[in-house]
Nucleic acid binder design. Structure first.
Lengths: 251, 251
DNA sequence: CAGTGGTCTAGACCACTGA
DNA sequence: CAGTGGTCTAGACCACTGA
């Protein structure tokens, strides 16, 4: 229960504010430098307690964070081990369209091309990954960045799961923004692919037919029930998805 | 210091194994359902202690996890607040090429097209984001999936930071795999774009000129020093990056 | 300057599992 | 069955900051 003032760490120690963060960094450095190779068993919590002269919770916090970040694997009775190298992961931020456009200093404009309710066709059902026909809302729109087309959006929304969307007039707020702020989702899947623009798509994006475009198709679910499927198509020469990643999991 | 056996939770309670996980889930559910809208101040830790009849550390663990996941924001003195809706994020797994091919049941073959050391050109320096010329290793290769070209790889490696790579014969192990298992990295950036194959690239990928291709350009650093820049180019019609995501941050 | 979160202590009991 | 991690307790002191 006692909480004595700790001796100030010497300069040689990489003395940051938090002890648990320092423990984590020390171990991370040993792993990243190769000093502790994959498969190596690292000291047990009770040893690290002694080494750092701290409570076990403090060590546990550091090791748990390393396990979440994928740098170590922990097994009861056996101990904690440096992980085999991970497949890289890239975190792609899919931001709000309006914010994305305005971040470049351009004026954002939404142009709704079509907006209608219907019963799902077979192709709609495939996109929503459902087996039975159901009422849907189909929206097609263009997002403008100044005088240029930023992207074309082709969206289906499952009206049986999001009935309130039927009453929304999408005159300025993009459908994706409305959904994100009004409909919670529990799972999403993104598929990124490249395609050649056909005549129709080329006209919509103001490109030459055959131009390479980047398509991000995203499906979201809430408790296993489909909410929406959207295809966002961007001119390939201008649009880039950029992802930063560091192995710490910090993004 | 006492640790009395807790009353078994009733069925009405969403009684999962861990109390901190249950607290987290309860709050997450209230946020996701909209019962606690963005901006709402949530109960302080000391109130939740009483509600769940537990120690403050247990509540803190749940709330810290929610903060890391981006569902709440915490401010000293002010309290904890439900976050504004996040931009979606998609975690793209960039797996080992060989493993990716073999996962589809195909035979993987590496074909090294060129492999040479040179001093960096201006274009190389731009790709590696460095200002001064330096020795590099440039590798071009094709990854085969059975009789089809899975991808074309155009890679630069900074020999001043990874000198040991000069001695590696890339006869069967892809360069990316060697790097990932031998060179720790601290940061990576991925840029995903679509492009039309020119005559040369089309020949390499066995495509028609002009076909849409997906390019993933990735740079990695170790302690701010460049390690490698690679352009992986995939036939757009066959290759897809698929990303799953759930808002809990579980991936 | 009082309220809130951030972090830590010095234990405790338990679940799991591999030597 | 003993060693290890998982989780929790009942506090403590402190940093920060906004009413």
């Amino acid at each position: 229960m006692e909480n004595l003032k700790r001796e100030p760490a010497t300069d040689a120690d990489s003395a940051k504010g938090q002890l648990s963060a320092r423990i984590r960094q020390d171990i991370e450095r040993k792993i990243m430098s190769g000093e502790w190779p994959p498969g190596k068993r690292i000291p047990i919590e009770r040893e690290l307690m002694i080494e750092y002269d701290c409570a076990r919770m403090t060590v546990n916090k550091a090791l748990s964070a390393l396990a979440v970040a994928g740098l170590i694997e922990r097994r009861r009775r056996a101990g904690s081990f440096v992980s085999r190298p991970l497949s890289q992961a890239a975190v792609i931020e899919i931001s709000d369209v309006r914010a994305e456009v305005e971040a470049t200093g351009q004026v954002y404009t939404l142009e709704v091309l079509s907006h209608r309710q219907r019963t799902s066709t077979r192709m709609d059902m495939k996109r929503l990954d459902v087996e039975r026909p159901r009422p849907i809302l189909a929206i097609a729109c263009r997002h403008w960045s100044g005088q240029r087309v930023h992207s074309f959006e082709d969206r289906l929304i499952d009206l049986s799961n999001v009935p309130e969307v039927a009453a929304v007039a999408f005159d300025s707020e993009p459908p994706g923004t409305w959904l994100r702020t009004h409909v919670p989702w529990s799972e999403a899947e993104n598929r990124i692919t490249a395609l050649n623009a056909d005549a129709d798509l080329a006209a919509k994006l103001l490109l030459k037919e055959g131009s390479a475009c980047l398509q991000v198709e995203r499906s979201t679910w809430r408790d296993d029930r489909p909410i929406t499927n959207v295809r966002m198509i961007y001119p390939g020469d201008s649009y880039r998805l950029v992802a930063h990643f560091s192995p710490k999991g910090a993004g």
